Simulated assay, not measured.
Amino acid sequence: MTEFEHMLVNSFNTYIEENGIRAISYRLKQHRFTPQFLDVLVDSLNPDLYLGIECKSISVDKGANALYFSQHFTVDKNGIHQIERISNYLNKSGRRGFLAVELRLGTGHGREAYMIPWNELKKKYFDKDLKLTLQEIRSFPEIKREGKNYRVDPMEWERK
């Protein structure tokens, strides 16, 4: 589990506990030859909290200026792109999907993270607009930081 994924799982469980919600956030153990559908899952009877989140982290300090669908996502042995696989899973499971993108800004500059509704990502992919620029990523709801940890609020993440 990456540090970002671990922080999100902990942040969700803190949010759930503080708000007295019957839910749980977790990450399924990844097996070597078994595909993992999503990085972070949240299970709840509340449909607003029945979530599936894919996490990506890019290093802005090392020159990344966009999240590229060809570079940052995988294609399986059958030639199916990760965005298609996850979209199919979200559709079948009924989960609300998001892409969480962490921007690593370099030593002394911290990190930023943004939550992108999966439907927005899927639309870009199928429209053949195959990247998200830093400006586009930053136009989505930010996952606020509290010290070194993230502070999630799923109710803020849907576009108005």
Rank of each mutant, 00 (worst) to 15 (best):
W157E: 01
P117T: 03
N91E: 15
R96P: 05
H31C: 10
V42I: 13
G63S: 03
S44L: 01
Q30E: 07
I24G: 00
I58E: 07
V152K: 04
G106L: 07
I21F: 01
D48M: 04
E84N: 10
N46G: 07
N149K: 11
D61Q: 10
E18V: 10
T107M: 09
C55W: 06
T74S: 13
S59P: 00
R111A: 12
L130N: 11
T34E: 13
Y125Q: 10
K29C: 01
I143Q: 04
R85A: 02
K144R: 10
H109E: 07
G52V: 03
I137D: 04
G79L: 06
P141E: 06
V40P: 02
K124M: 10
I58Q: 03
L41K: 11
S93M: 06
A23Y: 05
W157C: 08
N10D: 02
F98G: 09
R27V: 02
K92V: 13
E112S: 13
R96S: 14
D153H: 01
V40K: 00
S93A: 14
G79R: 01
F98P: 08
M155Q: 14
L45V: 13
M1D: 04
Y26V: 02
K160G: 13
R95H: 12
E112T: 08
Y50P: 08
G110P: 08
I116A: 15
H31F: 06
N91S: 14
R32F: 05
K131I: 14
L130H: 11
K123E: 02
F140V: 07
V101L: 03
A66D: 13
F37S: 05
K160N: 12
R138G: 13
L38V: 14
L45I: 09
E102K: 12
E102Y: 02
G97M: 07
A23L: 07
F73C: 00
G94F: 04
G108Y: 08
M155C: 12
Y125C: 07
L67W: 00
V152A: 11
D127K: 14
T14G: 06
I83H: 12
R32L: 06
I21W: 01
A64T: 06
Y125V: 12
E112L: 15
D127W: 08
S70P: 03
R111M: 02
K29H: 10
L103N: 10
E120C: 15
Q71R: 15
P154E: 05
R22C: 12
D76K: 15
E3V: 14
N10L: 15
Y125W: 10
F4E: 08
Y68L: 15
V101R: 05
D153T: 13
D39V: 02
I86W: 03
L41E: 04
K29Y: 01
S25G: 15
A23P: 11
D129A: 01
M155I: 13
E102H: 12
Q82D: 05
E112N: 13
S93V: 09
Y150R: 01
F73M: 02
Y89H: 15
E17S: 01
S44M: 03
N149V: 08
